[in-house]
Design a protein around this nucleic acid. Sequence first.
DNA 1: GTCTATAAAATGATAGAC
DNA 2: GTCTATCATTTTATAGAC
Lengths: 215, 215
Amino acid sequence: MRRIAPALRREELINAAVTVIARDGIVAATTRAIASEAKMPLGAFHYVFDSRDELIAAVIDELMGRELGRALEGITLGGPRTVTQVLEAGLNGFIDWLTENPDLELALFELAFFAARTGTSGGMGAQYSAYYRASAALVAQAAVLGGVQWNEPVDRLARHLTALVDGLTTTWLADRDTAAAREFASLAASALATKVHPISHPQTTVTQEYSHHAH
Amino acid sequence: MRRIAPALRREELINAAVTVIARDGIVAATTRAIASEAKMPLGAFHYVFDSRDELIAAVIDELMGRELGRALEGITLGGPRTVTQVLEAGLNGFIDWLTENPDLELALFELAFFAARTGTSGGMGAQYSAYYRASAALVAQAAVLGGVQWNEPVDRLARHLTALVDGLTTTWLADRDTAAAREFASLAASALATKVHPISHPQTTVTQEYSHHAH
DNA sequence: GTCTATAAAATGATAGAC
DNA sequence: GTCTATCATTTTATAGAC
């Protein structure tokens, strides 16, 4: 048949793997199932990837990129003013996405634990570093839009937010109770917002002294 | 050889499965690996369980029982007085256990997602029902020890607590940052404690009226 | 009842024709 | 470069000797 650019084949296999893992779970993501989903012969698989683990690692990288992109968009949508409102809006936006893509979120957890067991793609650590970065973007933006400063390092708050999002996700995946999830989002936003102080009255002993006067 | 009571064999296989899953992950928990761990011939496996999935379901049930037992003990340890302190002490107790049994907590997540994919043991729902019950015990006890009442149904608060514990766990499993986890425990305890009011002054229609005047 | 031996199917990876 | 055919393992599950 026609020659296909290696980069394209690689992309198609990754997308096929994402589809299979989201639909049937990582256990069902065999080389045959993935190649079949990509409408490629099995032989083409090892022409692009040396091993199955190498593909799984590529899938994690791909999904982390998407996650970051998704987190960064839609944050600046006008409306909310206070830090709590911005955070809650961000979490509710995540819930909207979660309820429409539950299988993909399930897949992300499966991939994280797979990485933890096999050491693939730097273990869970690499994946959560990406989550922390995505959360840091929201945390930082919330302070800017709310016109306040954080009392704690953004990195630490980003880790807290990641934990809150994870808990929100696992419980919703288990019981699919969206109303409860939104209530938890409210609790989570308020909890983080306690770590803030007005930008006009900077505190004394705080680690961060600078100020972001946005607009 | 000697005849062994079926109930004992069953128990030994379940314990062996827990060991294997915690050590090597659920993917590595093959019938051979489990039987070998239990020092039984492979043939004995299907003498007790019809299939591998049936064993996994039994493992989930077993671990949920342990989880409930663990949650209920150690709560009444004297010391903390306020609701926040009781909750934080409970969460820190969990962190102590988590840091000593990280592989088992990893296994619990793997089992939950496995159940979600296969429908084994009632899916994730059954497992999280057990978590909710365990969390409800801590939530209820915190109010009693703190001499307060909750503004929201205990079931809802128990779900919140489960989400907080889940997020605490996943992030710690990813970065093993115990100091950060304890800080998150403090945040989580304070967040839940906002849903309380003094038992001596029951409020009327209010969702939450007073708040914490952060010094 | 117990356990060895084996069946039947699935999987990751490769060889080799074109 | 492409893809069919196949290897070598590993898996769940069972048959059948004792």
